[in-house]
């Protein structure tokens, strides 16, 4: 991979609106974006090509974020992507649960571009905003 290759981010969310908002922010940060509407769809994408970053909703039909995270981490190279949970769940114990399940960061919804940018910098996926 040459250094000019853009980083890739997989957005996993059952809300088309959230995917659209997140896509706009991530594309502004020069990410190449893919979308999945649930964990099963996301897993298929990851088996094909592991993204650099996964933005992961918690509650979704078919396969939820927690189940996806467990399956992802069990895949070959499945520990490589930085996973940012992104959920309306804002209770401290639930956030702690997501982190101990192997998420690298946690974003409480609603979020904006400044927040997402600072979280991506936190996991080293982009240069820190100044």
């Amino acid at each position: 991979m040459s250094p000019v290759d853009p980083k890739t981010c997989l957005i996993v969310d059952d809300s088309r609106i959230i995917r659209k908002v997140a896509r706009r922010i991530l594309e502004d940060l020069a990410f190449e974006v893919q979308e999945a509407a649930d964990g099963a769809e996301a897993l298929e994408v990851c088996v094909g090509a592991m993204p650099d970053v996964v933005l992961l909703d918690w509650q979704m039909p078919i396969m939820d974020g927690m189940t996806f995270l467990g399956r992802l981490r069990a895949l070959p190279d499945g520990r490589d992507p930085k996973v940012l949970f992104c959920s309306v769940e804002t209770r401290a114990d639930r956030i702690a649960e997501a982190l101990s399940a192997g998420a690298d960061e946690y974003v409480m919804k609603p979020f904006d571009g400044d927040i997402l940018q600072s979280k991506l910098a936190e996991v080293g996926a982009i240069q820190s905003p100044s």
Binding site: T90, R91, A92
Partner: peptide
């Protein structure tokens, strides 16, 4: 607010040094 706390702080640092009071 959750907007303010998330801007610049990692989730781990937030949980370590802040307690939740309503929202």
């Amino acid at each position: 607010s959750s907007f303010e706390i998330q801007r610049g702080l990692s989730a781990r640092t937030m949980l370590r040094w802040f307690e939740q009071v309503d929202d």
